[in-house]
Amino acid sequence: MSHSAKLVTRYTAPERVNHWFVTITFVMLAFSGLALFHPAFFFLTNLFGGGPWTRILHPFIGVVMFVSFMAFALRMLKYNHITPADKQWLARLPDIVRNHDDNLPEIGKYNIGQKYLFWTLIITIVLLLISGIVIWQPYFAPKFSIDMVRLAVLVHAFAAFVAIASIMVHVSAAIWVKGSVRAMTRGTVTAAWARHHHGQWYKEIAKGSGK
C-alpha cells in the first residue's frame, strides 16, 4: 500500500497472545499426535525428543491447550452466533471462493465459515480432552474398561482428524484473504479490509458500539 491506510483494531494484545498460545500448542499436539497415528508421521517424534517423550508430552500439552483454547473461545463466543445475513452470505460461497465479492451481504465480525470453525473446534477439543484422558498412560487409562479405551482412542483419532483438517482450512483462508494475518500478528486491519469483509462489524466499531 502506497498511501498510509486507516487502521482499525481487530484484536487486543491479550487476545493475540492467547491466540498464539493456542496456535503453538495446537501445532505441537497435531505433530505429536500424528506421529503416533500413522507410521508415515512417526519421524515427527524427533521434534519432541523421541518416541517416549512424544508420548509423555502430548497429553500435558493437550491440557494446557484445552485451558487456553477455552479462555480464547470465551472471548470470541459473543461474535459467533449465526445470523440471517450469514446464511445469505453462505449462499454466495461459490462466488466468494472465486474472488467475486461484489454485492455480498454485510456481515459481522466473523463470517459463517469462521463461525462453523468455532463450533467445530469447541466440540472436537472437548471430545479430544475427554477421550485423551481415557487413553492417558500410565495415569488414567488403567482405570477405564478396555472397551472404553478402545472407543476413546477411536473418538480421539477421529476428532483429531476433524480438528486438524479444520485448522488447515483456517490457515489456508488466512493466507488467501490478504490483510488477515496482520490481525493476528499486529492486531490491526485496514478500514477498507474491515468494510469489505465484515461490513456490519465495521459499522459497529465506527459507531463505537463494538470492537
Binding site: 503416533l36 517424534t45 523421541g50 518416541g51 517416549p52 512424544t54 508420548r55 509423555i56 487413553i135 498412560q137 500410565p138 487409562a141 478396555i146 479405551v149 478402545r150 482412542v153
Partner: peptide
C-alpha cells in the same frame, strides 16, 4: 514408547 496401545 509406553503408550499402552498394545493393551488396547
Amino acid at each position: 514408547i509406553g503408550c499402552g496401545y498394545c493393551i488396547t
